[in-house]
Amino acid sequence: MARSLTKRLVSGVVPAVPFLWLVVLFLVPFLIVLKISLSDPVVAQPPYTPVFDWSDIGGFFGKLDLENFEMLVEDGIYLDATLSSVRIAGISTLLLLIVGFPIAYAMARAPVRHRPLLIALIILPFWTSFLIRIYAWVAILKPEGLLNQALMGIGLIHDPIIILNTEAAVYIGIVYAYLPFMVLPLYASLERMDNTLIEAALDLGCPPWRAFWAITVPLAMPGVIAGSLLCFIPAVGEFVIPDLLGGSETLMIGRQLWSEFFSNRDWPLASAVAILLLIILVVPIVIYRDVEARRLETQR
């Protein structure tokens, strides 16, 4: 009896742990941010009204409004920043795919005994702080930086190229920083692929490059989608890379959020931007789930 009780307890508690985690660390903070986004800014501590008061619940809800969201729509800068973020994240994801696929493919084709080392090498950069690695790129990309010195040293160019504080620097930074998130899911799906499928394609008269497009790429699709989402989603909200490498010209929603929050101290507006960002990012996830569900459906 005691055993079945323990069993029932375990089977009840175990699924509750992730739920509790999500409720405490995601749902509750989200509701707080949502509430702040519906409030008005004020120069006080905390910098928003109304503050929750048990004695006046009716008045509390009455004072909430959508003013901040109206502001987001009316002021063009938020829409521009959003579109610019999506564009930069989209181009970055494409670049990551182009760079990451050959790496993942080579890893999956490497002798089995070398693979753990290759995976370790891909993960190795995480041993150093993200922030420090991005700062290092400032030293590489600045006009008198390592890259320009090297290029001028070998006589390829005579004047330094301006890379730092341009969008190009942001792409370099994102591709560099996010590469493991693209390579690892791609590797996982390519490594699982049975090489005799390629042999079968060759045997049926399909030259290698065509077999790559007809067999390898479609079978790597789950990895392509997972890797793209893992890179696209955080890239849209990226703050550190555009702030350090992108200069003032690069418009991204993450930076906008930061300046509303810390420079303007307009917490309600910043919260509204955060909610907007969340909505933008929920869309691709829902689309992905929908596509995946339909794929599984047709295969059943």
């Binding site: 499928l197 079968a200 060759l202 049926l204």
Partner: peptide, 20 residues
């Protein structure tokens, strides 16, 4: 002569059917 130009076709032990 590469496999894709040989007038022989093979049935693989694992069948190697294209899953997609």
């Amino acid at each position: 002569v590469p496999p894709y130009r040989r007038p022989a076709n093979m049935m693989f032990q694992s069948y190697a059917l294209f899953p997609h």
